[in-house]
Design a binder for these strands. Sequence first.
DNA 1: CGCCGTATAGTCGGATCCGACTAATAGGGA
DNA 2: TCCCTATTAGTCGGATCCGACTATACGGCG
Lengths: 190, 190
Amino acid sequence: MPRKIRNTLALALLGLLLERPMHPYEMASTLRERYKGSTFKINPGSLYDTVEALAKHRWIEPVETVREGNRPERTVYAHTELGRQEFVAWLDELVREPVAEYPKFVAAVSYLGALGPDRAADALEERARHLAERIDGAETALAETVGKGAPRLFMIEVEFVRHAWQAELDWARRTAAEIRSGSLPWPDHF
Amino acid sequence: MPRKIRNTLALALLGLLLERPMHPYEMASTLRERYKGSTFKINPGSLYDTVEALAKHRWIEPVETVREGNRPERTVYAHTELGRQEFVAWLDELVREPVAEYPKFVAAVSYLGALGPDRAADALEERARHLAERIDGAETALAETVGKGAPRLFMIEVEFVRHAWQAELDWARRTAAEIRSGSLPWPDHF
DNA sequence: CGCCGTATAGTCGGATCCGACTAATAGGGA
DNA sequence: TCCCTATTAGTCGGATCCGACTATACGGCG
């Protein structure tokens, strides 16, 4: 038995199966429908790998194989009691304990010096514009969904990323301004 | 030839080699010395794989193999001109274009409902405490380094993550408070 | 009716990443 | 001197992830 599952896609799938049994392809399309395509990386290869891993750990299990027309059988999975317990425990831990995550932007910022002050400020300003667009997009998605009468909790992660992007945007603008004004000194040997 | 390198550890290594030639183990220890252990995931396996990939792409190249005592030879690498160009172009792109990154916390938040209101608020408050500690740690590291006379730019990524953590902390506290006060309604079917 | 684009459903080989393990030397204390 | 630990340096097999590719069915339009 391979070691415990870490892949967050597994969390998404488990969460879905707590609602009702589904077959793999349906899990993917349901997630996309619910705007979760930007929260979880949904990729066919990983999807089927993950379903298998979940089954091997007995967090989910096949409940039936249906056949429509003469297409290959689709296996429908449901969560197990063990699966429900692990889901909640995992979730709890993920919320409580921040873990290291190495985002690409932080990596890049750590070598910002190599761009030289002008190009660095340009790049940060461009990023700020992109972030502003994304924030708009999140805003729209939120308004739409709440407009349809869905509870706020349904899109709570979008509220979070909007907030996080806003903070990143503020930093990018502020830092670009500091570079432009010369108040962030630039060592020569870069 | 495998496709273009994406791994950010490669960015870190290239950046180091722009300063001076090094052998792999030295790259790892230099990065750690400079507090980059939390910006880049430095793991022996990945390190040697990445060095090889960089060499295969001719972004770096071996310049000598030194031998001390009768230990195995250590290969010292230096950047190439191509490497320098790719480094700057890559950096520029990483700063300009936000890319999707699927952090675990966002995944967890998207199923926050499953914890129920009390446990969710507890968990968010605990996270806030952990974040506060990290922010303190970053603060200390910054003060120390600047105290030694290093330029701010040297630790600019720490300034960024401090800012990002602060935003996350604010959100966690605010959301916990909303849950406690009942102003974030909790649907039943969770 | 036949054609074409889109939706459904999934496979497979290879790229990538990881971390437990090996092994030699230096330094320091008994 | 001999042992113990820390540091230096790196290897390897397997776990994981990825995404291009395959293949069938369905709906609409000329």
